[in-house]
Design a protein around this nucleic acid. Structure first.
Length: 362
RNA sequence: GGACAGGUGUCCGAGUGGUUUAAGGAGGCAGUCUUGAAAACUGUUGAUGCCGCAAGGUAUCCGGGGGUUCGAAUCCCUCCCUGUCCGCCA
């Protein structure tokens, strides 16, 4: 969540930066500023009333020996309390509306993000290897089924469509890749973490997943827990509410978790095969850095991840996403387009500014 | 799932409805003493919002939320968390 005070002090800066994503965000900022003004007015009024309440309550205490006087103070106090209760309701509504709106303000993009509305303006920055095309080309769902690596029907039997069962070599391959990624990360100095798979609401909100993506997650009934959509949530929340010294940075974490997404609203998109699953496995790399080393740490992280593709001899193109294509939480994003299937992202790498999650230490 | 005990400031810890301030201690900071340090003594020391040019004022904060009351850390309800014991069980 953005700092309201910052936003109040330099609204034009925010408007300019945010309109790179979407012009309508300017209006959102204006709405927030108006709400903020109202909230502060109401709060001042409420403070005055509460002061009066405190004074009257003290008078009641002092007039113990005088029942008549005491009674009259009590009556007065009652009236003030009622007025406070009214105004506090307004205060609460305004506050609620204000934080909700604030949570809907996306992160500010870094300057190097190319301007553009859709993926046609994305910028290819690097290319590695050449895809080898042959007559034997088949879609992965055919190969997977024929070699008995993937079983789509039985996934439905156990769960639902878009839950796929990996069998035999397929299961072993999945496990091997996870191990390969984790081991590689360990040699690069990332501390391996095995986090909880269920995540509480605070962590989900702190990392910006909520309220924007509510509906995209699986949620436990009668519990305030969500199935993790990405290990990023738990890894960055590990240090929630902590003050970190510069000497502790950068902190480097890696984690394997299964990830769960409802993929609501994307019913007809990339449904075939294992591209867009409700449950998938991911090895996540996270660095917590100071602002001044952020860029070089990001570059290092990119390299660490890219090395895996090269070791696996997978040709790829590295693409910098444009302003219209960068996700809500991200300040910039690099994505790897895999082989000759231009539509498929095999990974996305981004600088994520988690505002409100860390306080800056001295 | 059941029973009990807890959750108070940077930390420890007192506080079962009221007189201006959440007692006291530790730690931190400043000072006195000392060649210097330690000890001792004295003083000081929270966060956040709002108003104000400022000095300052004011409100909120005792796990979260709600309620009772003129007044709540304190009483009631509810949820979360921690500990101990019991039951159940992949």
């Amino acid at each position: 969540m953005h700092d309201l005070k910052e936003l109040r002090t330099k609204p034009d800066f925010y408007k300019e930066k945010l309109s790179r994503r979407d012009k309508s965000l300017v209006n959102l900022i204006d709405e927030i500023l108006t709400l903020d003004k109202n909230k502060r007015d109401i709060q001042t009024k409420a403070d005055e009333l509460r002061k009066k309440k405190n004074e009257i309550a003290a008078e009641v205490g002092r007039s113990k020996d005088n029942p008549e006087k005491m009674e009259s103070f009590k009556q007065e106090g009652k009236k003030v309390s009622e007025a406070i209760s009214d105004i506090e309701k307004q205060e609460m509504n305004l506050n609620h509306e204000l934080t909700t709106k604030l949570l809907w303000v996306p992160n500010i993009l870094l300057d190097d993000v190319p301007q553009g509305e859709d993926e046609s303006k994305n910028l290819e920055v690097f290319k590695w290897g050449e895809p080898k095309l042959g007559k034997w080309i088949k879609p992965h769902w055919d190969i997977g089924t024929e070699l008995k690596l993937l079983d789509f029907e039985r996934g439905v039997k156990v769960a639902q469509s878009r839950f796929t069962v990996l069998t035999g070599i397929g299961a072993k391959l999945e496990r091997a890749i996870i191990n390969f990624f984790l081991d590689n990360a360990s040699t690069k100095g990332y501390t391996e973490i095995f986090p909880p798979i269920l995540i509480n609401k605070d962590a989900m909100t702190g990392t910006g997943q909520l309220p924007k993506f509510e509906g995209d997650f699986y949620k436990c009934e009668n519990e305030f827990l969500y199935l993790t959509p990405t290990a990023e949530v738990s890894l960055t929340s590990l240090h929630k509410d902590e003050v970190l010294g510069y000497e502790e940075l950068p902190i480097k974490y890696c984690a394997y978790t299964p990830c769960f997404r409802r993929e609501a609203g994307s019913a007809s998109k990339d449904t075939r095969g294992i591209i867009r699953q409700h449950q998938f496995n991911k090895v996540e790399l996270v660095k917590i850095t100071s602002e001044d080393t952020s860029n070089e740490e990001h570059e290092g992280l990119t390299k660490d991840a890219e090395e895996l593709l090269q070791k696996l001899e997978l040709p790829y193109r590295k693409v910098l996403l444009c302003s219209g294509d960068v996700g809500f939480l991200l300040v910039n994003a690099m994505t790897w387009k895999f082989g000759f299937l231009p539509k498929i992202n095999i990974g996305k790498l981004a600088v994520v500014l988690i505002l409100d999650l860390f306080r800056q230490g001295e």
